[in-house]
């Protein structure tokens, strides 16, 4: 375990001494702040109008009108930005020749992968926590339901964890960081598009495509529904990504 943590610390030093982590976090906060602000502004004007009518007044729900769309927007931003976080994990080691140091150390490949993945998860956590600060004020000035709010952030974290697992896999395959980012981004888009394909598909195909799509599983969480099948989906996706990373690294050496 201490070996995993050593790798994680080293990765965090790399993230936070290069501009990458700062830029990714700053832009994420900026965009999420913008979406949050405009959604709250829109909510206010809607609420003002709806307040005239007692029937509509019952319908006003800050969770559904602000947070659900906010989480959806943030999930797309994560899809665009997390490939940049994961792209360097193995690509850079390979390019710099430092993987030779890692793989000739008495540390297992699994520990190396976990250490790197953990560091990327910490960056993701920093993005989410820092961007969530402004949204806390809705609890001061209003009364949103906490469960859908927290589940939404949990969903974003799980979604991001799955993205990063896919990213680390591509990063193990190439020594070029740009190639790694583009491949991750492309694969993520493909999984996103699956839900569109599901609309036109029928029967079993529709179920399968829907199940594979990232965002179908995310939807429920933003509404405050925690389904174990969604949890299983994200966790198995992340596990599968890390497993493939391990296979790729072993295969490259044993070839």
């Amino acid at each position: 375990m201490s070996a995993v943590w050593s790798i994680t610390k080293k990765e965090l030093v790399s993230y936070f001494t290069s501009p990458i982590a700062y830029i990714v976090i700053a832009i994420f906060i900026l965009l999420s702040g913008f979406f949050f602000y405009s959604l709250v502004w829109w909510f206010n004007t809607q609420a003002m109008q709806m307040a005239q009518n007692p029937y509509y007044f019952q319908q006003i729900n800050i969770n559904q009108m602000v947070f659900a769309p906010l989480f959806h927007n943030l999930s797309i931003i994560l899809l665009l930005m997390l490939p940049v976080v994961s792209m360097r994990l193995f690509s850079e080691e390979k390019k710099m020749g430092t993987e030779e140091l890692l793989f000739t150390s008495p540390v297992s490949v699994i520990q190396i992968i976990l250490g790197k993945y953990l560091a990327a998860l910490i960056v993701l956590l920093a993005m989410l926590v820092l961007s969530a600060i402004p949204t806390i004020f809705t609890f001061v000035h209003g009364n949103p339901e906490p469960v859908p709010y927290l589940l939404g952030y949990l969903g974003l974290f799980l979604l991001g964890a799955a993205f990063l697992a896919l990213g680390i896999f591509w990063s193990a395959l190439t020594e070029n960081q740009i190639v790694s980012a583009v491949l991750t981004f492309g694969t993520l888009l493909l999984f996103w598009v699956l839900s569109w394909a599901a609309y036109s598909a029928r029967g079993l195909w529709q179920d399968v495509l829907n199940y594979l799509s990232f965002f179908e599983h995310f939807d429920g969480m933003t509404k405050g529904i925690l389904d174990t099948s969604d949890l299983v989906y994200y966790l198995s996706f992340a596990f599968f990504g890390l497993f493939l990373t391990h296979s790729v690294i072993q295969f490259r050496r044993w070839r």
Partner: peptide
């Protein structure tokens, strides 16, 4: 190794500390 495996963003001391940990 032939290409010296260094992390340019670390100090000499922290780099050696890291290698000590993984060794």
């Amino acid at each position: 190794p032939e290409t010296v495996p260094l992390y340019p963003e670390m100090t000499v001391e922290s780099y050696l500390g890291f290698v000590a940990e993984i060794k």
